[in-house]
Design a binder for these strands. Sequence first.
DNA 1: TATGAATGAGGTTTCATTCAT
DNA 2: CATGAATGAAACCTCATTCAT
Lengths: 208, 208, 208, 208
Amino acid sequence: MMQENSLTRRGRERLNHRRQILDAAVKLFSEFGYHNVSMHRIAKKAEFAIGTMYKFFSNKEALYRAMIMEFAEKVNAAIIEALEIPGDETEKIRNYVKIKGDVLIRNTTVLRLYVSGTQGAGMDLTAGLNEEIGQMYDQVLIRLAQVFETGIKEKRFKPLLAPYYLAVAIESLTNAFLLLWLKDPQQHPYMDNVETIMEIFFNNVRTA
Amino acid sequence: MMQENSLTRRGRERLNHRRQILDAAVKLFSEFGYHNVSMHRIAKKAEFAIGTMYKFFSNKEALYRAMIMEFAEKVNAAIIEALEIPGDETEKIRNYVKIKGDVLIRNTTVLRLYVSGTQGAGMDLTAGLNEEIGQMYDQVLIRLAQVFETGIKEKRFKPLLAPYYLAVAIESLTNAFLLLWLKDPQQHPYMDNVETIMEIFFNNVRTA
Amino acid sequence: MMQENSLTRRGRERLNHRRQILDAAVKLFSEFGYHNVSMHRIAKKAEFAIGTMYKFFSNKEALYRAMIMEFAEKVNAAIIEALEIPGDETEKIRNYVKIKGDVLIRNTTVLRLYVSGTQGAGMDLTAGLNEEIGQMYDQVLIRLAQVFETGIKEKRFKPLLAPYYLAVAIESLTNAFLLLWLKDPQQHPYMDNVETIMEIFFNNVRTA
Amino acid sequence: MMQENSLTRRGRERLNHRRQILDAAVKLFSEFGYHNVSMHRIAKKAEFAIGTMYKFFSNKEALYRAMIMEFAEKVNAAIIEALEIPGDETEKIRNYVKIKGDVLIRNTTVLRLYVSGTQGAGMDLTAGLNEEIGQMYDQVLIRLAQVFETGIKEKRFKPLLAPYYLAVAIESLTNAFLLLWLKDPQQHPYMDNVETIMEIFFNNVRTA
DNA sequence: TATGAATGAGGTTTCATTCAT
DNA sequence: CATGAATGAAACCTCATTCAT
């Protein structure tokens, strides 16, 4: 009687509506920033009444969190998947760099959001939300660190620096080059630059 | 006795008051962010009436700009000075890393402000101000790039990557480790980590 | 039963509320003047929250303009209608004087507003709004001048003075006597005085 | 020891300063209106410190009143003088019309102020000040009415209308044509138009 | 006496949120 | 459920006025 996914029509519609609101929110928040976008504006872009917004998200911050979380989960999932592709650690890192670029370049809208989340000094939000977002982003760092850790254990990388710091380093480098690409995609190609940087970096980290 | 600066007492007092306002602004803005701090709050912290604020800065954005600019100029000046200390390019970069750390660690308050400025994801401000601040921060990058350029010309560095990108790379690395230090100064010492990173990085950039 | 105006209940309510705001605004503005009335005061009198005011009028000036325009249109319409009642030019002018008096005496509230609009040196408003209001009021003058012009063409009036100036003259006279009436309705009846003045005036303008 | 006018140098200087403030005030108030001119702006134009303003006038309204009064007294004095020039009543009225035009056309700055004062729609000021200014302007009307009264007594004018109303009538007519002249001095000459109007008017008021 | 820095009440406007329909 | 009119706290900013120097 019901569809494949165990949801009523109502249920599916609700999900759709949620999606539309989140999509509108992403576009506006990432272009103008949290405080420069009003709930009314998002409602208008999503083509819902203002009251409806509050049926889905209890307040502005909740909407922001949901949006960030959803996005970060998507990016994180892609990245973690990349790190799971079989291969040695060097290849894993290469995959990470590539996939992260792929995902974020395809989602220009949120790139800025992602970077200011990871690096940024998100002074825009309440401490609580900031914390929560920070932890979200930290998951990637931790996963990345594990790769370095394994690499070191396997003696494929030199134990020059704590794995976590190596993770921080390449996170920050990829972010920097993504931001550069965003500023002027023609002039600052991401992959070329970041690959060279990685080469420079890893030549010295790798054993042999 | 003192150096009298050719300023009347009135003039000196005015400067002092301006300073007090800027100091209050720095503390609040860098802790809470532009939109989470009201002019009244700054006024209160600076112990002035709200009207006085507007005698010194024509509006909130002007105050923010003045504060950012003043701070960035201080940091930039220190950094550029560091790059002018005689020595070969490797030493110059080492000086840069050290001095930048010194200055920013001594000015914890604004560290976050500096990083989010360079990071340039400032979705918080009007486009015009963002632009202006971006240019301010870019000066360091350009100066840094010149050092790499010279290094390459003098065959002390390999021409692996455009000098500007090398500058971007070490800017982003130092920022990342400064932010880490800020999060937990005990656990994440800046100099140790950044020096190791630099070693890793430059081993491969330097010729011979 | 009633004429339903093709408006939803919501729509009709909105119109009502708009009316209530305009009514409050008219009373306050015409008693105290633009700058001596705050939006909060109008909101209070209209029994709405301050935010509601801005849902109906985008800012204070817009509210003022809407109020002036609506009123001027009402007065102008009545006057122009008066000038269209069949009859010779003398009768038309008599009608004008009478109807203008009727309308404005019934709308004491705005009388002052009308006079300061037509004659006044509205130094109170932005140049743009002043201009717009001026043009609004000028329409009556022009229409009035046309009556004089026809009267002259038909040789019922002597061509003593440009029609526009005759219009200005009787506008200013009627305004003056209306203001007098407003100051002390008992002591300075409008119609009696203005009729005599008109008699004096037209005895000499009329041919025959 | 002291000068001709029994004033110390200090005293004379004070008077000069007062004059400069009043001059600045007239220019600004009559161009922009009471509420669109700040005390600081007047102070700047008069080249005094803000504190000095308050040494001369206890507050903004007092300055406004002083300025209006002084100006009105000047105009009133000229007008009343005109009415005292020997001659019959018709000549007196002619003198009035001419002198009023002369004075006000030479003082374009305050023309608007004068008219909106007489017009009495000054919704801009506190009731008290408005009253006071109204009385000031009423003096001319009363003096003018006396001329008509005498004219009637002497049987030179017909007793068609209370003298005060005749006074109101020509006040309003002259004001209207002065305002017209102000709007476009080239296109709307004052004397020509007003003389014709007066002719039309008085032909019927004068006996024989 | 003249100065002008400082004051703070109060103005206009925005926007997250509620709730009757 | 969805709607959107209404709310009102709170933001930015102005300006008449005071007072120490």
